[in-house]
Every structure is written in structure tokens, then in C-alpha cells.
Simulated scan of single mutants.
Amino acid sequence: MNTSQSALWAERTGTNTYTGRSSTGAEVKIGPRGADGTFTPSDLFAMGLAACNLMSADRALARALGDDFDAYVGVQTTAVAGQNRYSRGDVEIVVNMEALDEDERATLIDLVHKAVDRGCTVGRTLDKGMSQTLRVTSEG
């Protein structure tokens, strides 16, 4: 893998700070907890899970609530003491379902769960696990 040809990469911008970039031109500031205007890598991990859940549910929600529905998604991670990892991530999608009756709400909630189970790559990867590799190479 050549990082200059990767779809995603991060460039060091200072001590423990980076700019994450994509081949589509997107950027995100990454840094340690408390650094102004940055996300930590753990924040991005959790945000990826949250956003993946909502994006996977978007079509089902739009069919039931209309194309211009408002939605918010939150995520809370639970750390494992002393192990520098998380044991779980709890995601909550918040939408206005007041126009739906009780049966319609239950059906929509079921459809959202099915859509997320089927379509959220991040959640599916966490559920099944993912191996990783690391290589360190030299420029030039």
C-alpha cells in the first residue's frame, strides 16, 4: 500500500496532531483529547459507528417519515479498565415519530434494525472482528 495512493490517509501537522484526508477532498482534524477543533482517533471510531447506523437506516426512515426528516444519532462507548479498548458501543437514533401510530412505530423500528444489521459495515465488522497489519516503510 502506498499512502499517497490510498483513499484515506493522515498527515502529521504538529506534535500529536494530524489532518485526515480522503481522495474525495474531505478533511478532518485529529489530535489528543482536549485539543481545540480536533477529534481523537477514538472519537472518529465511535462517530463512524454512529454515522454508519444512521446512514444504513436512512432509506427506511425516509420512506416512513418523508425525504426531509430530521435525525440525530448519538453514540456512547464503554471502556474496559486498564485495557485501552472498548467493550461496547451504544448507538441511539433520534427521529420524530409523532405522526406514526403505535404499530407504524414498531414496524419502523424493526425496519431500522434490519437495515442497520444488513447495511452497517462498521457495526458488522465490530461484531465479527477484524484483523489488522502494520508496515513501516521509508520514503524515497
Rank of each mutant, 00 (worst) to 15 (best):
R118G: 09
S6P: 00
L61F: 05
G25E: 03
F45T: 03
D103Q: 14
E11T: 06
A60F: 02
R105D: 01
V94L: 14
S87K: 01
E139C: 04
V136W: 01
T121F: 09
S138V: 14
R63L: 15
T38M: 07
N96M: 04
D90E: 14
M1Y: 01
K114E: 12
D58G: 04
R85Q: 05
M47E: 05
A62R: 09
S4E: 13
G31H: 11
Y18L: 14
G74Q: 03
L54A: 04
E98S: 13
T17C: 10
S23W: 03
T137L: 07
L61P: 02
A57V: 08
H113D: 14
V73N: 11
E92A: 15
Y72K: 09
R33G: 06
R12K: 07
G89H: 01
N84R: 04
A46Y: 01
P32E: 12
D43M: 06
A71E: 05
M1Q: 01
E11V: 02
G89V: 03
V73K: 12
A7C: 07
L54Q: 08
D101K: 04
D127V: 11
A62T: 00
V112E: 09
D70A: 08
D117E: 15
A35G: 04
N84T: 00
T3F: 07
M97D: 11
M130F: 08
G140H: 11
D70W: 02
G34N: 10
E98H: 10
V136Y: 01
V94H: 12
T24E: 12
E98R: 11
V95C: 12
S6L: 07
D127A: 15
R88H: 08
Q76L: 08
D68Y: 09
A46M: 06
